[in-house]
Amino acid sequence: MSDPTAPDPIPEDAARTALAKRGERLTTLSFAVSIFGALALAVVYWRGGQPQLEGIFLCLALGGLGVGMIVWARYFMPHGTDVEARHQIESTEEEIDAFREEFERGEHILTRRSLLVRMGTAAVAALGVALIFPIRSLGPRPGKGFKSTPYRKGIRLVTDDGTLIKADDVSVDGVITAFPEGHTDAADASTLLIRPNEPVQARPGRESWTPGNLVAYSKLCTHVGCPVGLYQAGVHLLLCPCHQSTFDVLDGARPIFGPAARSLPQLPIEVDGEGYIVARGDFSGPTGPGFWDRDR
């Protein structure tokens, strides 16, 4: 393990010998631990694997090697005495001048034909512009989908497994997540049906949207679109678990705390002859987070 060219340790220096012994012992021990870890890892894997044992033995195999190398370096390798000179990083003025001269010679050859230079530049620019267009294939034009959901007048509300929801299914203090019939995978149309234990204060023009005190709001937070899943029945508050926006269910889902700036859009609903809950149109506004031309 020691360099053959090195002279043997001076015998009278007992301390040095002891130190060398200790270093060699430590290094050998570390490498032995590493070998043990590697073999044990193989055995564990062979026997069907177990995540904790795999982690421990991998750690031993790698760690033993690492400790051994560092101890080796600390005991038996020279440290901290080498000196190297730094050199100037920037080029000298002469070098720069020489470069400039050569470059300008080439440049002069090019610029003699100014028409060619101009056309060449134009061709490269045109190619660049043409290459931007394929980006357009990445996604569709953001259209009406951002502002509307599949809800139309007469569409019935269903649960996430497609079961039609009757008005009676929602008990007082109850909450159900609903979707438009046939669109249970519409991410922008998830709806909260809530029947609070106190009367909803309808916004002007929305007096008939809450049959039997049943109210339907978009489930998507108007902040960044997390589902506002936490209904606190006793205080009639909806809380968004992502950023703690809080909405007052009795007061048109107005935000009363947190970073959301807009009320949750409300869905106009009615109960049909068979007792099913039916939408009377789309939400009162685009659902989910805001964007530049939301109001347009």
Partner: peptide, 25 residues
């Protein structure tokens, strides 16, 4: 004007590789 320290071979290389093993460990 100077750099004072350890040469790459073998001290620094060994310590650095050892550190890699320990990070992985």
């Amino acid at each position: 004007e100077n750099v004072v320290g350890e040469a790459v071979w073998p001290s620094f290389a060994f310590k650095s590789l050892g550190l890699m093993m320990l990070v992985a460990a």
